[in-house]
């Protein structure tokens, strides 16, 4: 059963790797950030699968922390790095 859970986790890890290509190629900042957000969700799933697969319930705590803090980076991105219709820049661009 361990190999089944880890196998599914491996597929998710490959999903992350494919998503990394989007981070590398992504034309806009939003593409890159959305891909990173996908990794956070994927990471939670991988951690839960590993927790089941190896029978170490402590890993679920790590997944919990990831689930909580995954949103932090995207909030920082939306509030600080990315602006759609903010005030005009004071220096000419």
């Amino acid at each position: 059963m361990t190999s089944f859970y880890v196998g599914v986790a491996l597929v998710l890890l490959l999903t992350i790797i494919i998503g990394l290509l989007r981070v590398l190629w992504g034309p806009t900042a939003a593409d890159r950030m959305m891909a990173a957000q996908l990794f956070s969700t994927c990471g939670v799933a991988i951690l839960l699968l590993l927790a089941r697969g190896f029978g170490q319930l402590i890993i679920e705590d790590v997944a919990l922390v990831f689930a909580l803090l995954g949103a932090l980076a995207i909030v920082a991105f939306v509030r600080r790095a990315w602006k759609t219709d903010g005030p005009k820049p004071d220096k000419g661009a």
Binding site: L72, W82, G86
Partner: peptide, 26 residues
Amino acid sequence: SGLTGALFLSALRRMTSHRRGERRLD
């Protein structure tokens, strides 16, 4: 993953806005 990412994004914003008042995305 959480704190450093937010800190770097904010620092990037400060750097770029300080240098040229322009957003990174453009």
